[in-house]
């Protein structure tokens, strides 16, 4: 760490441009002091400033070193592609062994998770997120690309295995759609930012029933538009290879397209749902009972045929909804 203390701030920043955000977010004003070395810079604070701003040169220098290390690792590496996630069985709440050998989930697959509330769906997700190694209450183990996973999946905030899209999420920021996506893109440090942002907004609009503009404030988006934006944003900007979906309400959004978008971005989709139209879109479904995986069902051909009937019924319902919205009177049963 000594080496960075003796380097000029301007040199450090030209070598590691991301340090600007470190100084900024830590409330350290560097304007006019770029010619100082780091240790000269810290020595330049008087006692009051040190106390007010809680500046601890030793800790801050160490944190800068750590930040540089992390960012180099983050920027330099090719993202490890997660092609498969394997679940190895553990026990249910009564201590009975789970009834499967191994469950391999592949990139581009949709897996549904079904089972009553409290049956252990969250624990299963928890096991995946924490890449359990027999050290969680279920005793399950998770492999990534058929191997014992790297520790980073547990501890690095930039490498999270699971991103979540849930039903009752809100936007709590007061920003336009563009600014919001831009903020996310910034934190992910993506290149060609503008194109990525445009693509996300386009995709979101293709999922939403009613379109919105980049200038629309996120707080005034409808439920369907919000869901569309969250899905497009997560599909394209989130680095997490697994997307967990906790139901998608059937309003103002094309759910089939939304899932298609996630899959086209090479995600693994896990979906906790009891909506038959969604559940049968999956390739397989995991049935959870008493804290354990009770069985794994491959969607059957019959079920796929039934799905297409269900989808038609779904469309009919949506058509009624649109009519009501437009102020029409419904006079007869419609067959689509």
């Amino acid at each position: 760490m000594d080496s960075i203390s003796n380097r000029k701030i301007s040199d450090l920043i030209s070598e590691f441009p991301f340090l600007t955000s470190f100084f900024n977010d830590n409330g350290l004003e560097i304007a006019g002091k770029e010619k100082n070395t780091l240790s000269e810079y810290f020595a330049g604070f008087d006692e009051d400033e040190i106390e007010d701003k809680a500046i601890d040169p030793e800790v801050l220098t160490a944190q800068i070193g750590e930040f540089i290390k992390q960012m180099i690792a983050f920027l330099g590496k090719e993202d490890e592609v997660v092609k498969t996630v394997t679940i190895l069985p553990g026990k249910d709440k009564s201590g009975e062994a789970e009834n499967f050998n191994e469950l391999v989930i592949r990139q581009g697959e949709i897996i549904c998770i079904v089972g009553p509330t409290g049956s252990g769906k969250s624990r299963l997700l928890g096991d995946i997120e924490w890449v359990a190694q027999g050290d969680t209450p279920t005793g399950r183990s998770i492999l990534i690309n058929e191997d014992v996973p790297d520790k980073k999946w547990r501890f690095s905030s930039a490498d999270k295995l699971v991103a979540q899209l849930s039903q009752n999420m809100n936007f709590v920021m007061d920003l336009s759609v563009y600014e919001f996506v831009e903020l996310h893109a910034e934190s992910r440090m993506v290149e060609n930012r503008e194109q990525v942002i445009e693509r996300i907004i386009d995709k979101a609009n293709s999922l939403a029933g009613e379109s919105f503009t980049p200038e629309t404030p996120i707080t005034s988006l409808s439920g369907g538009q919000s869901r569309a934006l969250m899905i497009a944003d997560t599909a394209i900007l989130s680095k997490s290879p697994i997307i967990l979906i906790d139901e998608i309400e059937n309003a103002g959004i094309d759910r089939k397209k939304a899932l298609g978008l996630l899959l086209s971005e090479d995600k693994i989709v896990l979906m906790a749902t009891h909506d038959p139209v969604l559940a049968l879109m999956g390739d397989r479904r995991i049935v959870i009972k008493n804290g354990g995986i009770f069985k794994v069902i491959d969607t059957t051909d019959d079920e796929r045929t039934i799905l297409s009937t269900l989808e038609k019924m779904d469309k009919t319902l949506l058509a009624y909804r649109t009519k009501l919205r437009q102020g029409e009177i419904i006079t007869k049963i419609q067959n689509t």
Partner: peptide, 20 residues
């Protein structure tokens, strides 16, 4: 659970910047 995935990621990355 009440904010979007994007906000969670941005928030966590800001925390990481001030305390790597």
């Amino acid at each position: 659970d009440i904010v979007s995935q994007a906000e969670r990621e941005v928030f966590a990355s800001r925390v990481n910047t001030v305390n790597p």
